[in-house]
């Protein structure tokens, strides 16, 4: 059995190398690393809103360094018309009055509060800081978990399909039907190749973007969550490839799966948009597991791991049935 598995594994690696899949993964890794290190963390350091203060009598004595003083009401108007998201404060009467372009009620209130808060230096309210992450590290971890999730559900999913569709077109899957080995090994070998590739990707992604020192402690948890997601996606990709006729049909299924898998999850996990049904979305829990692993808070609930294991076993059985069906197809 080990000899048969080695033969299958070696052949799968050869096909993956021939299909240039590793170059796609490497390209993604470089792109994501450049984005996080040279783009994302800098964008996120940008100020929320520019705040312009007109205070001819100097009534505001303890203003923040982030305030932009203006010399006249005309200059304040000009600044706001050039920066429509900006917040203006007219303190010419001695009492600060907020001037801004109307957006939505919630945004306007938020902008006004932020603008007024800059009239005082230092912290007015005492804030309890949770965790030890610096803002930059938090941003790195957040983006790392998001990109890792996207990479595995999108690129990994496509990768297994590209390899399998080739084998399907060549007809060699049918030949495996009459070879003396356990047919489940064919599926296991493919899963192993993609699992190893995803784990290496996740490790490099964490090391390059979270930092060697910080990543070392959380890497095992990240790898566990990556492993769960990788197996689920590889099995889903395998099943779709067996059931669908060609890559065109698969591409459509891929778009649907990616949209339905990722869009609601990112909205629920990263914004104030909350969907009542999101708790029923299995990928939401896997994503949160991955994100929490990046923040050093691994999932400890055994129900999560039992459900994941059951899901993987059920998918494996479906895929095995689809694989047997494919072996019995006409040429």
């Amino acid at each position: 059995m080990r000899k048969n598995f080695c033969s299958l594994f070696k052949k799968d690696c050869q096909i993956m190398l021939a299909g240039k899949f590793f170059f796609v993964a490497l390209g993604s890794l470089i792109l994501y690393t450049l984005f996080i290190n040279f783009g994302y963390i800098h964008y996120m350091n940008a100020e929320l809103y520019n705040v312009y203060l007109y205070d001819p009598q100097g009534t505001q004595q303890e203003v923040s360094d982030l305030i932009h003083p203006v010399a006249s009401l005309e200059e304040l108007d000009a600044a706001l018309s050039a920066d429509t998201n900006g917040v203006g404060i007219d303190a010419s009467s001695g009492t600060p009055a907020v001037v801004l372009y109307h957006g939505s009620e919630k945004t306007d209130n938020h902008s006004a509060d932020y603008g007024l808060s800059l009239l005082h230096q230092g912290n007015v309210h005492t804030t309890q800081i949770v965790g030890t992450n610096t803002p930059e590290l938090k941003q790195r971890k957040e983006m790392c978990s998001e990109l890792l999730f996207i990479e595995i559900i999108a690129v990994g999913f496509l990768g297994i399909a590209s390899v399998l569709f080739k084998e399907k077109q060549m007809g060699v899957i049918r030949v495996h039907g009459i070879l003396p080995f356990k047919k489940s090994l064919f599926i296991t070998s493919k899963l192993t190749v993609f699992l190893v590739s995803d784990l290496i990707f996740a490790a490099l992604m964490a090391l390059f973007n979270i930092g060697f020192h910080e990543a070392a402690g959380i890497l095992p948890d990240i790898l566990v969550q990556t492993g769960i997601l990788s197996l689920v996606m590889a099995l889903t990709g395998f099943g779709c490839t067996m059931l669908l006729n060609d890559f065109r049909q698969f591409s459509l299924a891929y778009v649907v799966i990616v949209i339905f898998a990722s869009a609601p999850i990112f909205l629920s996990a990263n914004t104030s948009v909350k969907m009542a049904w999101i708790d029923w979305h299995p990928f939401y829990h896997v994503y949160m597991g991955l994100k929490n692993a990046c923040f050093g808070m691994p999932v400890t609930n055994p129900v999560y791991y039992i459900c994941s294991a059951c899901g993987i076993v059920i998918l494996f059985l479906i895929v095995r049935a689809a694989f047997h069906r494919e072996m019995g197809k006409e040429g």
């Binding site: 048969n4 033969s7 052949k11 060549m170 007809g171 049918r174 009459i178």
Partner: peptide, 30 residues
């Protein structure tokens, strides 16, 4: 049972990216 049979399919199903020798090495390895 599978060790005792040989099957030639209607179409020549082979790994196109591999050579004749590599294909036969792979299939015979089972």
């Amino acid at each position: 049972f599978f060790q005792k049979i040989g099957v030639l399919f209607e179409f020549p199903y082979l790994y196109e990216n591999l050579s004749a020798i590599d294909n036969l090495k792979y299939f015979s390895s089972f």
